[in-house]
């Protein structure tokens, strides 16, 4: 019984850590936007990186994805999906962006 409540505490702590981390990152993103405005690419880069960080925090602490053996199958799946997704999104943006330039719908 004691072991169970110990495990319970541990698992709950993971969620709380994940929540705290995500909360901080969220607040950071919005304050950057508030303080610096959202016009420049530099600011957007920072926002993007913080978003990525939050994705990872949630994957680890909420979805329990890590390199431990038990969740490696899920990790493999997520990584492969990310690969496909990247191919699809980067390819699409590349192709359509290039077409837009050549059609003169956006200036270059």
């Amino acid at each position: 019984m004691d072991r169970r409540s110990e495990m319970h505490r541990r698992e709950r702590r993971r969620y709380v850590i994940g929540y705290g981390g995500s909360l901080l990152l969220t607040i950071a993103v919005f304050s950057i936007a508030y303080v610096f405005g959202i016009e420049t690419k530099g600011v957007y880069l920072a926002i993007g990186l913080l978003g990525l960080a939050q994705l990872i925090v949630q994957l680890v602490y909420f979805l329990h994805i890590d390199r431990r053996r038990s969740s490696r199958e899920d990790l493999d799946l997520v990584l492969f999906s990310t690969l496909v997704l990247l191919i699809i999104i980067v390819g699409t943006v590349w192709i359509m962006g290039n077409l837009a330039v050549r059609m003169h719908t956006i200036p270059m």
Partner: peptide, 8 residues
């Protein structure tokens, strides 16, 4: 033939 660049 849709019109993207030769590189693509």
């Amino acid at each position: 033939t849709m019109g993207q660049s030769a590189l693509i």
